[in-house]
Design a protein around this nucleic acid. Structure first.
Lengths: 149, 149
DNA sequence: GCACAATATTTCGTATACGTATAATCCGTA
DNA sequence: TACGGATTATACGTATACGAAATATTGTGC
């Protein structure tokens, strides 16, 4: 394996692209009227837009994050008026995470920003290559026995 | 663009693979006798193994991190006896970052761990696909006018 | 029914990243 | 040579992530 230079290391490349996209999303959210949305909120929002009222543990499984990480994420999202925690009537250990009105309203502009940023980031790269890379990444997650892939 | 599910979102896939590899590296460093090495140190160590005595700003350019991020990273690496800051004789603004004896000694075991983890992570994926993905990621960084690619 | 294991969430300490502001130093030019 | 702008590094506040431990509740086996 070639590891003489950083740019030969796939971990370095993946990390840097991740930071790059995060920075681009943050900037575009801020300048597109959805400044309360942070890149890290995306995995929660996209899950809830599909199925509102999920449990914390369900959200963390879908996002691939630890429940303890989800706690802080939801704190900030609640502060930013995107979600609300509500008690589960049948199991008092459980909190249901519900979208607020704002959380539902930002859906279209947020998805537009994500599509625009991803399009710009992958500008000039054939769609087939992007698909192949996504398959490879999904394969990696499967290798690691990750759920929800 | 397909964005109905998280697993169709390249940003989600890249982020999760990044976290996955970070966790695997952390665990393997700890169990391979180089427990003082953290995944984030890699970009600094690999740069210094090639050219010792770089400036903070040179390291941050090579790593693609902000100088303010590099400060904290170097604090922890100094605490863990991997690097030392030394004054530059010709420019008193500059600090030269030098490897310690330990920093030089961990090179071989650290690179072995990185190779092993990467091999495991990409297990079952043709080398050609990995190369194509690395090219795509480098292309993305070039799109963003990043240096050192 | 009751002790105990399992589950759901949070808390706390730490690592890693950013952006803005600040301090120290260097350099070009009047 | 003195001054103003550029450069280098750090400090500070915040966001995002983990793991270990704590808390509250539910479920299970006897």
């Amino acid at each position: 394996m070639m590891l003489n230079t950083l740019k030969e290391c796939p971990y370095y490349l993946i990390s840097r692209v991740g930071l790059l996209v995060t920075a681009a999303l943050k900037k575009e959210f801020a300048s597109s009227g959805v400044g309360q949305v942070k890149p890290a909120y995306l995995c929660v929002l996209m899950s809830l837009w599909q199925a509102d009222g999920l449990k914390v543990i369900e959200l963390s499984k879908k996002a691939g994050l630890e429940p303890s990480t989800m706690t802080g994420l939801l704190d900030r999202m609640e502060r930013d008026d995107l979600v609300a925690r509500t008690a589960d009537l049948t199991d008092r250990r459980v909190l249901r995470i519900n979208l607020t009105k704002t959380g539902r309203q930002v859906r279209d502009p947020v998805l537009k920003v994500v599509e625009r940023v991803i399009t710009e980031v992958f500008d000039g790269i054939p769609q087939e290559d992007i698909s192949q890379t996504k398959n490879l990444l999904r394969h990696v997650l499967t290798n690691a026995h990750e759920e929800n892939i």
